[in-house]
């Protein structure tokens, strides 16, 4: 399948947002306190909204009549471009908040950089998303601090979640030829350039939270090119079931 770099790039942004939004939505009605049902719902809605904007744009770039739903509901796992971090299961509340922090602390400077993209559509979507992700950093960061510096149990859980999920953070800062060309053209943001800010943000929070930043271990990567963990298939099975069972129906 030949596709333009810009299409691939928009799809990567969309897939990250949708899969993480889907994960957040799994919490609704089951969270530790009613206020968090609302907060997790808000974050899920932000992410799904971002995904829809990026899908609509990707479909436009492609020009083959694929809309947001065709892109979201009719691709198999190997065609999904999200990073592995966002498809990891919710785990306990600590794992969800650590995952959210690791991602949001990357997405926030990413969207900030994209507001200056030479591609006006990307810049416009990023302008809204940047503000949303700033809230996600704040909210998840506050919880990571509370949990890390809360009770013995919450500290242990937060550290265990961080130890498990940290290996997925390297992938956030990788780039490939698809992105290189766009970076050089001033359209995409260079992921490697986002890393110092990401490190400042998360390390500051981890130190307040009395959590130890794990050593940089083997990096789990592959999502951007369609090599996923086992979890994505189950997400898609749930998400796509109606569209697959009743092909062509309008909902």
């Amino acid at each position: 399948m030949h596709e333009t770099p810009l299409f691939s790039y928009a799809l990567r942004l969309a897939d990250n947002a949708l899969i993480l939004g889907h994960r957040m939505s799994e919490w609704i009605g089951h969270s530790p306190v009613l206020e968090e049902d609302l907060a997790l719902g808000n974050m899920g809605l932000d992410l799904i909204g971002q995904a829809r904007a990026f899908y609509a744009y990707a479909g436009e770039i492609e020009g083959k009549g694929r809309d947001e739903d065709k892109l979201a509901y009719l691709r198999d796992a190997k065609d999904w471009r999200n990073v592995l971090l966002v498809e990891q299961p919710n785990g306990d509340f600590a794992a969800t908040m650590i995952r959210q922090l690791l991602f949001a602390a990357y997405a926030h400077p990413l969207y900030a950089a994209l507001t200056k993209s030479k591609d006006a559509s990307l810049a416009a979507i990023a302008a809204k998303a940047e503000k949303e992700m700033a809230y996600h950093v704040r909210h998840s960061g506050e919880w990571v601090i509370r949990l890390g510096d809360g009770t013995e149990e919450s500290h242990e859980r937060a550290q265990a979640a961080l130890d498990e999920l940290y290996a997925y953070s390297t992938e956030l800062f990788e780039s490939d030829d698809v992105e290189r060309a766009l970076i050089d053209a001033g359209i995409a943001a260079d992921p490697a350039a986002l890393r110092p800010e990401w490190e400042r943000t998360v390390n500051h929070i981890f130190s307040e939270a009395t959590l130890k930043t794990p050593p940089q271990s083997f990096a789990q990567t592959g999502g951007r090119t369609g090599r996923h963990s086992e979890h994505l298939g189950y997400i898609l099975a749930d998400m796509q079931f109606l569209q697959r069972t009743y092909p062509g129906a309008a909902w």
């Binding site: 089951h30 306190v33 306990d92 509340f93 601090i145 509370r146 809360g150 009770t151 149990e153 859980r157």
Partner: peptide, 13 residues
């Protein structure tokens, strides 16, 4: 029940 440790952590913090 699953959220108890979270609420306790928030209070302790």
């Amino acid at each position: 029940d699953n959220g108890r440790w979270v609420r306790e952590a928030a209070l302790a913090y």
